[in-house]
Structures are given as C-alpha cells and as structure tokens.
Simulated assay, not measured.
Amino acid sequence: MRIAVAGGTGTVGRHLVAAAQARGHEVTVLSRSSGVDVLAGTNLDPALADVPVVIDVLNLTSLSKRKSVAFFERATQNLLRAEARAGTAHHVALSIVGIDRIDASYYAGKLAQERLVSASEVPHTIARAGQFHEFAEQVVGQATFGGVSMVPRLLGRPVAASEVAEHLVSIAEGAPLGRASDLVGPRNETLADMVRRMYAHDGIRRRVLEARLPGRYGRGLASGDLRGSGSATVAKVGFDEWLSSGHRRR
C-alpha cells in the first residue's frame, strides 16, 4: 500500500517511515526537501495522486496558542483539501490523550486540528497517544541552565515514539475509525522523575527542579489529565527500558 507521511523526518515520523517500510508499504515523505511544502500547499496534489492513506504527524515546538493554532489549522486544511481532490481513502492524524480540558498553549493547536479532521468529508481516524518518552530529552534541551534543569510539573503515561509509529501503521492498514483507542504508557510518570532517571542512566550530574507552569496549560500538565481516561491500549516499552534500548535515538 502507498502511504504518504506528513512530518516524516520528525520524532515520530522517522520511526513511522521505517515501520511502514518494514511492513512492505511504499512510503512518500511529504517534506520540503522532496519539494512538498504542506504549510504552503506546494506540490501536494501530485504527491498525493494515487495515495490511499495519509498519516499526519507534523509538529512544531511552541507554547504560543496563536502560533500553534495557526500552524495546525493551516497544515491540516491544506492536507484535507488536497486529499479531497485526490480521493484519499484514509487520513490518520496523531493527537494527544487527555487534552480536552487543556484548550491552551500548544494543546489548543492539537484540538483545532482534531476539530478540522472530525468535520472533514475525508474518511479519517484520530489517534491519540501519551506524551513521548523523548519529551524528557526535548524539555531539558530547552530548559537547562548550567548545572540546573527546570522541568514543568507533568503527570502522564508516556510512550515510546517507536511504539506510537507502529500503532499508527496498524491503524493505517485498517478502515477509518473516526477515533481510535488511545495509546498510553505502561505506568504513570512525572516528567521530573523521568529526567532524573535519564541523567542517572547517562551519567550526568545535574540538578532537576520541578515547577508548575502558570495558567490553564500549567494546571493541565499537573492535573493528571494527560494520563488519559477510560479504556486504552497499553504500550509495552516503559521509560527505563526505552533509556537502554534501541527505541531511543540520540
């Protein structure tokens, strides 16, 4: 099967492309390097010709609600319009568990994306997953000052990006579901504890300070909502296993 991946060079996208190819699928990566600009809508029509499935794992790093909403709305609208013209049979969108009450900051963009996908005439599946194990590395890369890392208070059930990728390929191989079962990690984790264990594993001596971020976004991170609720598919790879396994890409 031919699958187009938007965001195929990112944290999940790299694993997704590899997982789809390993299962025998022909993968087209929608990227500027290949001449396709999803945000600008450039060359989407030829890229999606005769492609039955599109998986969207595009992402940006921003805590600005305005920037997040603008990014996800523009990218999603461009993809869905091109897919409607191409007759795409299945649009798969990756989102995040537990964000319904956190319509703020970055998560406002993901909720805007979900609304557009749900309202689209393109057959679709929204697949929510927990925060990634990789988030621990991403956070400290942006919030470390000398010998101190400042980490937001966050309670969730994180998953490995590689398992999210496998989950998305399985969904893409099936019929559109509208909303797939959430994918969550095997145990509850706080981000600060994850960072401390990561530093211990890597032999890094650095102090980790945890602080609750202000506003609705900060309350949402600390609330435990990001653990998800109800029935969910439970991933297999825990954080400590991820640290010392091939699932981690450094």
Rank of each mutant, 00 (worst) to 15 (best):
L155Y: 07
L79N: 11
F72L: 01
L226Q: 09
T28R: 15
G224F: 06
R23Y: 14
M198L: 08
W242Q: 09
F72P: 00
A129C: 10
V51T: 13
Q77R: 10
L80D: 02
H247D: 11
S62H: 03
G98T: 11
P152I: 03
I3K: 04
V151M: 11
L30K: 06
D100P: 15
V17P: 14
S231I: 00
A165N: 07
Y199T: 07
D182G: 09
H124M: 05
V97R: 00
I99M: 10
R197I: 03
E166D: 15
I171Y: 05
L63T: 14
A19K: 11
L155Q: 08
L111G: 14
H133Y: 07
P46L: 09
Y217E: 12
R32I: 02
A19W: 05
S64Y: 12
G246T: 00
A119E: 03
G230F: 04
G109I: 05
S149L: 06
G109F: 09
L154G: 07
D37K: 06
L209C: 10
T76E: 02
S245L: 07
G146F: 12
G174D: 01
N59G: 01
V148A: 10
R197V: 03
E163G: 09
T42D: 00
R248A: 00
D37H: 03
A20G: 11
S31N: 08
D182C: 08
P52K: 03
S231T: 02
G224W: 06
E189S: 11
G41R: 00
G178P: 12
L221S: 08
A192F: 10
G215D: 02
H91V: 05
G130P: 08
H25S: 11
P186M: 07
R248Y: 02
G174I: 03
T11S: 09
S68D: 07
A143W: 05
G220P: 07
E121G: 13
L183V: 02
V195A: 02
P52W: 08
